[in-house]
Design a protein around this nucleic acid. Structure first.
Lengths: 97, 97
DNA sequence: TTGGGATATCGGGATTTTCCGATATAACTT
DNA sequence: AAGTTATATCGGAAAATCCCGATATCCCAA
């Protein structure tokens, strides 16, 4: 758990927005663009207004920080939050840092 | 409470180190370089190995993010943690973000 | 097996961050 | 008033980040 990498991942308005959307996918994405594995890249990209390459990169940054998880199914990659990571981070800030 | 500003402030190894030192000043600084208002800039600078200007800037960044507080006394500025801010951030990550 | 759709990676210009040395300011001392 | 000490601010080189367009890869369908 690289603290600096996590905080860097969180140091961007667009990435915080993505994490917020993924907290309640059913609220932010239509049913056909999500499943139990998460939401696909294209839906996130479309909603964000940023380019596909940027969103793909941002999702990779969040994934490398451990904040989200990816599941590839056919040509789609579904991303969802790793809630354990957020719980651990919350605890860390509340006690260690 | 600007989330991005807070996470940017935390996105640096040296600044995280400073916050860690300030968590238990009595463990990391000699008694004559601290008081109830915190630890003075020079002591932090000396311990860090970075230059005076860099440490002064880093403390300003942490202060602007609300993570630490400054008290000027004569020619010294004492810095200490703002624990409420850390508690609030922990709560935020555990529920909002 | 070829074409198309979804995602990842590459290369890069613009901006920001990192950390420095030099200089300014502010307060104390004599 | 002049010198000293503590801190803040300025200007800048190097590195990192932001976000893009172009291209590559991967998978499915016809």
């Amino acid at each position: 758990m690289d603290q600096v990498e996590i905080f860097k991942a969180l140091s961007n308005k667009s990435r915080l927005e993505i994490l917020n959307w993924l907290k309640n996918p059913e609220l932010h994405f239509s049913a056909e663009h999500q499943n139990c594995a998460g939401v696909c890249v294209g839906s996130i990209q479309e909603k964000s207004g940023l380019t596909q390459s940027t969103i793909s990169e941002y999702l990779t940054i969040l994934k490398r920080a451990g904040l989200i998880e990816a599941t590839r199914t056919g040509q789609w990659t579904y991303y969802k939050r790793n809630e354990e990571a957020f719980a651990a981070l919350s605890k860390l800030i509340g006690s260690e840092i």
